[in-house]
Design a binder for these strands. Structure first.
Length: 391
DNA sequence: CGCTCCCGCCAATTC
DNA sequence: GAATTGGCGGGAGCG
């Protein structure tokens, strides 16, 4: 097939070392970042799938993934064939609140996924012992509507996404492993194959949410298994929030240092600030995303590999070089300058760091919020180094 | 190796 | 009956 043009094609542009095919650079998470960078801005209001696919240089199929996930949290809305309406991050809180409600009445049993919230490490049976029909669907079939194979919808990525979220916002556990989530979302069915497929999907979802800072990947406190923690608003019901306010004191974890203000991931208000931060970040980097050579560029994303713009790998752990440090890409940098923001983009969602230094990252974020005018990129790099050192 | 999860075949749905 | 959507899982990248 047409693999990365290692032959032909001048590698001149490609900043990456020799051979360059990075699976990471093609992850849904990165794609999502690009997608948001492209549409999360002033004036945007309509989104065409074809356009998106071209702009982002990916196959259409991938756009569906992104769009479906985003839609399930209200960021987008389908208007018509090939056409979506941008709603923005501000729509998230409401969407979540809606989900919470559903979670409450629909399926009270899915309340706990525990998976060792404290000491349950053994068999991670989730609370729901039987409760087979845990799959959503408010009103089950009543009329003759044959629900035969309307399975399709029940298995949609969108629904899965929402149910996945429900797990976080309505359950006790705050760190959930995909395996646990999959089991919970899978009703019962102990089919290993179904399980694997489900987990695959969850990985997809988790990746895009991570790129949106709604989820954070981390090691489970005890089991050490890779898991995720909800970063978005928890949306508490106003009624019992009284006693709820302090669920801190959790587990020894990283809660001791300063972490002063902020830190209450529960309040919606807090979320809003986060929202702002995210939005801001998205705006800052890449004030211009334009695309020359657009022309037709029909399908064939393979052509031109287009590694020109959208380079970067937010998630690259310590291994990969910080984009900012690599000076070899000066070429492109020369042109369109305003985005020296590129220099520090990678840091803000470095998951690995986030794992161990959540509070530092938090601090960084707030700092970033103040640094409206970047240009203090060096500062960031310094911080980055510092964190690495700690590691 | 086992964990991740990209890729794209091809079926279900919608024009 | 073509075009859109999108489930699904093989199997490759990577740590």
């Amino acid at each position: 097939h047409e693999f990365p043009s290692m032959a032909s094609l001048n590698d001149s542009e490609t900043k990456n070392p020799p051979s360059s095919y990075s699976r990471k650079e093609k992850s849904l998470g990165v794609l999502c970042s690009n997608f948001l960078r492209l549409y999360n801005r002033e004036g945007v209001e309509s989104i065409g799938l074809d356009n998106a696919a071209n702009q982002l240089g990916v196959e259409r199929r991938r756009i569906y993934d992104i769009v479906n996930i985003l839609e399930s949290v209200g960021v987008l809305t389908k208007r018509a064939k090939n056409q979506y309406t941008w709603k923005g991050f501000s729509a998230i809180p409401h969407a979540l609140e809606e989900l919470r409600k559903q979670a409450i009445n629909e399926t009270p049993k899915v309340s706990q996924v525990c998976s060792s919230g404290t000491d349950v490490n053994r068999n991670d049976y989730l609370g729901l012992s039987n409760s087979n029909n845990s799959y959503t669907e408010t009103h089950s079939q009543s009329s003759g509507s044959s629900n035969i194979e309307n399975n399709r919808k029940e298995k949609s990525l969108g629904l899965l996404t929402q149910n996945f979220i429900k797990l976080f916002i309505s359950s006790k556990a705050e760190v959930i492993s995909l395996e646990t989530a999959a089991t919970a979302l899978l009703g019962d069915v102990h089919d290993p194959t179904a399980m694997r497929t489900k987990v695959r999907r969850l990985y997809d979802i988790a990746n895009v949410f991570s790129s949106m800072n709604l989820l954070e990947k981390m090691r489970h406190p005890e089991s050490g298994k890779p898991s995720f923690r909800w970063l978005g608003p928890k949306t508490k019901s106003p009624t019992l929030d009284a006693n709820k306010l302090k669920r801190r004191a959790f587990g020894t974890d990283l809660t001791n240092h300063d972490n002063s203000k902020s830190k209450q991931i529960d309040s919606v208000s807090d979320w809003s600030s986060k929202d702002v931060t995210v939005a801001m970040l998205n705006n800052i980097d890449h004030v211009k995303v334009e695309y020359n050579e657009n022309v037709t560029t029909k399908q064939q994303p393979s052509t031109s590999r287009n590694s020109k713009e959208f380079v970067f790998g937010p998630f690259t752990p310590a291994t990969t070089q910080k984009v900012g440090i690599s000076g070899n890409k000066k070429l492109k940098q020369a042109q369109d300058w305003e985005n020296l923001a590129d220099t520090f983009r990678p840091q803000y969602c470095n998951k690995d760091l986030g794992d161990l230094f959540g509070h530092y990252v938090e601090a960084w974020k707030s700092w970033c919020g103040e640094a409206e005018e970047k240009k203090q990129a060096p500062k960031v790099i310094a911080l980055s180094r510092y964190l690495h050192a700690k590691t």
